[in-house]
Simulated assay, not measured.
Amino acid sequence: MQSPTLPPSMLSALQRVMRPLVRLMLRKGVTYTMFADLLKQVFVDVAHHEFRLNETPPTDSRISLLTGVHRKDVRRLRSDAGKAPEALPANITLGAQLVSVWTTSPPFCSAPGQALPLPRLASVGGDCSFDALVAKVSTDIRGRVVLDEWLRLGVVRLDEQDCVHLEAQAFVPQKGFDEKAAYFGHNLHDHACAAVHNLSCEGQPFFERSVHYDALSAASVEHLRDVVAKDGMQTLLAFSRLAAELESVDTPSEEQRQRITVGLYFYTEATDPDSSKTPGP
Rank of each mutant, 00 (worst) to 15 (best):
P8V: 02
L11K: 02
L14G: 10
V17A: 10
V17W: 09
P20L: 13
L26V: 10
T31S: 15
T31E: 06
T33K: 09
M34V: 14
M34I: 12
L39G: 12
V42I: 08
H48E: 13
N54R: 11
E55C: 04
P58T: 05
P58I: 04
T59R: 09
D60Q: 08
S61Q: 14
S61R: 14
V69G: 01
K72L: 07
D73K: 06
A87R: 14
L88T: 06
I92N: 06
A96Q: 15
V101Q: 15
S105W: 01
P106E: 13
G113Q: 04
Q114M: 12
L118V: 03
P119M: 05
C128V: 03
C128I: 02
L133I: 01
L133N: 08
S138P: 08
R144S: 14
L147F: 14
E149F: 02
R152H: 11
R152W: 01
Q161P: 00
D162Y: 05
A168G: 11
Q169P: 12
Q169M: 06
Q169N: 13
K180C: 04
A182I: 07
N187D: 11
L188P: 00
D190R: 14
H191Y: 00
H197W: 02
S200W: 00
S200M: 13
E202R: 13
F206M: 05
V211R: 05
V211Q: 03
D214H: 07
D214M: 04
S220Y: 00
A243E: 11
S248D: 12
V249E: 13
T251A: 15
Q256V: 03
Y267D: 09
E269P: 00
S276P: 05
P281E: 08
